[in-house]
Amino acid sequence: MENRLMMFLVIGTEAIFFLSLIFAFVYFAFEPGYDNHTWQLLNIKSTGIFSVLLFASSFTFWRAEKSYKKGEVKRLKRWLFATIGLGTVFLFGQGREYWSLLHEDLTISKNNFGTSFYTLTGFHGLHVFIGLVILAIVLKLAAAGDFDEPDSSVINTVGIYWHFVDVVWLVVFTVVYVLPGVLL
């Protein structure tokens, strides 16, 4: 129980961190320097697909937790592996998007859209990356037999974090990719 409460508190404080970044993004969206033209460079379709994959990783993790509770360690490992795979693909997608945007000459110092876009999505990517590292450790521990008995709160705790990262992306995706298209 202590672990879970700790993780709830951590994601609470992380949520406010992301709110601040989103606040900055929206703040600039109202400023004249915000370049709507550059927003058009974003590829909502391909990013949408990668987003779906990230959301799918929440599902696979949920399956992993279920398997763990039932004591099916083999399945746990499989679902964990799938989760890591999906997360990695998402990061790959983000890298791909950054690459193409840099080719379009949108850098972090180009204008304040670039500034707030890279910062917001970059910090989310960083959280995904940290999540992947944690998941890899969990997978390693599972392989070492640490989770043979379903009495640990570790998997559940890591799950809180991983679902949180997905929820943050849901909000970021809506604010950065969807809403400007609807409202502008």
Binding site: L19, F23, V26, Y27, F30, L183
Partner: peptide, 14 residues
């Protein structure tokens, strides 16, 4: 508050 903040500081005319 977030919504209020948004409306307060949003440019006129939205």
């Amino acid at each position: 508050s977030l919504l209020g903040l948004l409306i307060t500081f949003a440019p006129l005319g939205i």
